[in-house]
Nucleic acid binder design. Sequence first.
DNA 1: TCTATACGACACTCGTCAGTTCCGAAACCA
DNA 2: TGGTTTCGGAACTGACGAGTGTCGTATAGA
Lengths: 208, 208
Amino acid sequence: MSDTTLSEEDVDPTPRLGRKRDHSRDPEILAAALDILAEKGYERMTVDMVATRARAGKATLYRRWPSKAELVIDAVACMKSTHPADLPDTGSLRGDLVANIKAPAVKDGERKLRIMAGMVSLMSESPEFADAARSVIVEPRAAALRTLIRRAIDRGEVTPDVDVHVLAQVIPSMTAYKSLMLGQAVDREYIITLVDEVLLPALGLPAP
Amino acid sequence: MSDTTLSEEDVDPTPRLGRKRDHSRDPEILAAALDILAEKGYERMTVDMVATRARAGKATLYRRWPSKAELVIDAVACMKSTHPADLPDTGSLRGDLVANIKAPAVKDGERKLRIMAGMVSLMSESPEFADAARSVIVEPRAAALRTLIRRAIDRGEVTPDVDVHVLAQVIPSMTAYKSLMLGQAVDREYIITLVDEVLLPALGLPAP
DNA sequence: TCTATACGACACTCGTCAGTTCCGAAACCA
DNA sequence: TGGTTTCGGAACTGACGAGTGTCGTATAGA
């Protein structure tokens, strides 16, 4: 799904004529779309805004994506998902959780939350938007936290009785709540509070 | 703020002439606005939809509220807030938390979440929408949970060391996350899971 | 009864935005 | 070099929605 923009080329039998499409512009356009989506929301974002921010013509966008909806879905689907394999391994769960909070990751997380916010009302009506957002923004983060907790269980640090699936949602849901519902910034310090006051105690570990 | 619709009458010095405005229609119109807001979101909701659903003319709406934005803000502000004083008191925190999950309250909570969802992208740009939504939907629920936890502390059931403010957000944020981000229904059973697997353990109480 | 207003219903204006088309310039290929 | 396509830019079309005005009817006070 992430190579939608290339698929027609692969299938196309005719070795096209004339000037070639400059696919190096795709990422800039998609990034511009995500920027505007994050700051305005889907409905208040206009295709003209995206074209202007990407320093492209609107016709260029419509030559590549058939509609605003497809452009946004592609932009979300092509987002680099959060660090697939570079999970920390410090030997303790708290160490892993804290090491997982890097300054750029927090800023990046806040941006992804804003992008989600811009799509929330659409997601309940359109499964395509919902799937794109969930598989790229929501799921990777939850998967990372599940892995860290499972490692702690394997290590014997945490009892296997805990509900990994639910507890892995504590940090993502509470940061989303603070940012979207309360309108407050989520910083490193707040996430550490969540780790020490909520997640670790809920796992039966003592707060430091 | 909730009596915005009446204020001009109070101040108006002239004892108006002609047919009187039928204020008994206000609640129906505001309820229709909330319904459409919940199912479509602010941007996709049209004033015509609200008028039609309320079986009213569009002019009637504009005679009462100067704009779509003010209509929605008033609709949200006039929502009945969740049970102000009828908090349960069963003697144990778990008993209180479980007793607090009544079937209508869960359904009502889901609707309020949908209403929030319809305004999330606006809230970051317009403090008026944000304040209305937070003071009526978000804050009362958090306040109720803070009260239940503080009672448990006073009772000696829970240590006073806990971060009441943060822990009172566990249930609201995780139900909002499940509903809005994951697109899954929130039922009584799930809330009990949150109580037993997250909140009570985080407060240092044993899961039953 | 007379006048003024509210009512629902509908037509209307006006701005905005998705999507299309055209332009001159540039780039690719035969 | 000439035909074909892309580019950014801008004008254009068509639909839709916020807000207004009008019409016939209903209801209030004078």
